[in-house]
Design a protein around this nucleic acid. Sequence first.
DNA 1: TAACAGTTAGTACTAGGTACTAAATGCTAG
DNA 2: CTAGCATTTAGTACCTAGTACTAACTGTTA
Lengths: 194, 194
Amino acid sequence: MLVLTWGDFMSSKRLSKRERQNELKEKLREDPFLTDEELMELFNVSIQTIRLDRLELGIPELRERIKNVAELNYSKVRSIKGTEIVGELVDLNLGSNGISILETNNNMAFKKTNVIRGHHIFAQAESLAMAVIDEEVALTGVANIKYKNPVKAGDKLIAKAQMIRKRGNKYFVHVFTYVKQEQIFRGKFILVSI
Amino acid sequence: MLVLTWGDFMSSKRLSKRERQNELKEKLREDPFLTDEELMELFNVSIQTIRLDRLELGIPELRERIKNVAELNYSKVRSIKGTEIVGELVDLNLGSNGISILETNNNMAFKKTNVIRGHHIFAQAESLAMAVIDEEVALTGVANIKYKNPVKAGDKLIAKAQMIRKRGNKYFVHVFTYVKQEQIFRGKFILVSI
DNA sequence: TAACAGTTAGTACTAGGTACTAAATGCTAG
DNA sequence: CTAGCATTTAGTACCTAGTACTAACTGTTA
């Protein structure tokens, strides 16, 4: 059996600038914790070449990369904590209707397909439904929902909620979510105030 | 009204070594991105004092702290990428059933009531339903769900999924979620493979 | 007032770089 | 075969955010 490690591969072959830079991007995407020195050994070129490559590709230094990774995750936690409403509330008539907008990104998507995971669409709709009813505290009792079309990362979700009726402490709210006029989700919620 | 900022507080008062070291630990727990220089200004002491404090408390330098945050989340991200499952998968029989556990915390709850927001319960159930069906890529088409009882932050959610039947590319999966034997959620999902 | 904890000052050194200049090497077209 | 250009390598000064260490200076307390 012939087995070539990355090391064998790299020491046997010197890639062209373009090839090397592509591999460099790929390697650093996989592992942003690699130092220039490690990359230099990986690609069997001088450290200056690695640095020129990073400069040309606009890739920041190790410490910046690590910091970016750290801040990404640190801010993610904070932003979730901050908002109780998923998406941005752009219109609200208590007891009647409301509109919220959610900008999707590929953190919300399946990596393979880039399709937004259902629970994000659900979360936007549910929290909008909650916002619409004129109650201090409420919980979702029942939801009947339908995903009509897949949503791609980057799409802007516009959710429109309408309170249909109120019976005792139960609120019936319908939410329709659109991407560019096209309906992609429909949810019927029964919310219970407590 | 008397308002004291942290700055006022710190410049008016010099804490004892013990107090300062406690505050230091707390500050760095809140924000690990603080440099010794920023801490020095915060506590109104010299940079050497901050460094002695860190040494005594065994707190690593800024870059190490950032790296730790980054690595923590990097491995977390990787594990999410691997599973894409909300909660921890403890049992799985492809095409039949599965169980996942989600430890809730107060980041997942309404601040006022400490009740877990519905979409977290939904997300656990939906992703477990996805895991159970033996398909590479699938989307939720329809869901009919019911929240039976509110869940408090700290509760451990045990979701049990059962695939009921398959018709063409449609899968019918039922998920029941429990907190200490008590059922708190029920969801009927129709998943569509693509 | 001596002893000691606590604090501050200063120096040499480190990793992992940036920014820059200069020189060497490789390839290609005339 | 060689001029000209891209590419690569070498080397220097400088940076940040430190470590590790020595020495000196306060402040309190016995």
